[in-house]
C-alpha cells in the first residue's frame, strides 16, 4: 500500500464536494445540541459510532472488491432519510469525478457506467481506495474520519469555535476512530462470506430526522 495515497484521499482539500456538507452539524448547532467543544465531541462520538461505522463498513467492503450494486442497495437500506440518500449519491458522484481524474482505473469507469446518477459516497470511496492501491482498513479509516471531520470543520464556521479546540476534539476521538475502522474492516471480511447483511447497520434517528428538517430550511449555509 501507499501511505501517501491515503493522505491524498483523506485530505480535506481533496476536491470531492465535502466542504459544502456539515454532516448534521448545522441542524445540531441550530437546535443548541452543539454549542462548544464538549458538545461537538459528544455529537461526533455519536456520529462516529452510527453513520461513521456504517459508512466505514460499506467503504471497506467496496475496497475489498465486493459487488458495488449490492453494496449500494445495502447503503440505501441503512439510510432511511431521503435527504441523506440524495446527499450521499450527490457526494458519490462528486467523489467519483475526482477519483477518475486522480486515479484512472477500469473499476472506477465501471462504477460510473453502473451508476449514472451516482452511487452512495462510501461505496465510491471504497472503490476509489482500491484504485489508489489502498487496503479495506484504509478505506474504513477515511470514511470514519470523514464522519467526524466534516462536522468539526463545519462547527468552526458555524459557531466561530476555536479551530484549535476542534482539532483537539478530533485528536481525542482518534483511538475510538481506530477501533471503529477495525470493526468495519472485520465486518467487510464477514460480508465477503455472508453477504452485505453482515455489514454494520447502526442508526441515529435524530440525525435522520434533523436532516429531513434541515433540507426544508429556506436559509442555510450547508447542503446537508
Amino acid at each position: 500500500m501507499s501511505r501517501a495515497a491515503l493522505l491524498v484521499l483523506a485530505d480535506g482539500r481533496f476536491p470531492a464536494g465535502g466542504h459544502a456538507h456539515s454532516g448534521g452539524a448545522e441542524a445540531a448547532v441550530r437546535a443548541g445540541r452543539i454549542h462548544d467543544a464538549a458538545s461537538l465531541e459528544a455529537f461526533c462520538r455519536g456520529r462516529l459510532h452510527t453513520a461513521g461505522l456504517v459508512a466505514a463498513g460499506l467503504a471497506a467492503a467496496a475496497a475489498l472488491g465486493l459487488d458495488s450494486v449490492e453494496l449500494d442497495a445495502a447503503a440505501d437500506a441503512r439510510t432511511p432519510s431521503p435527504a441523506l440518500r440524495a446527499a450521499a449519491r450527490r457526494l458519490g458522484r462528486q467523489l467519483l469525478r475526482a477519483a477518475r481524474a486522480t486515479w484512472p482505473a477500469p473499476e472506477l469507469e465501471a462504477l460510473a457506467a453502473a451508476f449514472p446518477r451516482g452511487a452512495h459516497q462510501p461505496v465510491v470511496l471504497g472503490v476509489t481506495a482500491r484504485a489508489a492501491g489502498l487496503q479495506p482498513l484504509d478505506a474504513a479509516h477515511v470514511a470514519a474520519y470523514e464522519s467526524v471531520g466534516g462536522p468539526a470543520t463545519a462547527t468552526v464556521r458555524l459557531l466561530g469555535l476555536d479551530p484549535f479546540e476542534a482539532s483537539g476534539v478530533l485528536a481525542r476521538l482518534a483511538p475510538v476512530l481506530d477501533a471503529v475502522a477495525e470493526e468495519a474492516a472485520a465486518a467487510a471480511l464477514a460480508a465477503r462470506r455472508d453477504g452485505p447483511t453482515a455489514l454494520p447497520a447502526a442508526s441515529s434517528p435524530l440525525l435522520d430526522i434533523s436532516a429531513e428538517a434541515h433540507a426544508s430550511w429556506p436559509v442555510r449555509l450547508f447542503a446537508s
Partner: peptide, 21 residues
C-alpha cells in the same frame, strides 16, 4: 443553485465538483 458551505471561493476554485455537476 449550488450550495457552498460558507465558502463561496472554494466552490468555484478549490473544489469545483458541485458546480461542474
Amino acid at each position: 443553485a449550488v450550495e457552498t458551505g460558507a465558502c463561496p471561493h472554494t466552490a468555484i476554485r478549490d473544489d469545483i465538483s458541485a458546480n461542474l455537476e
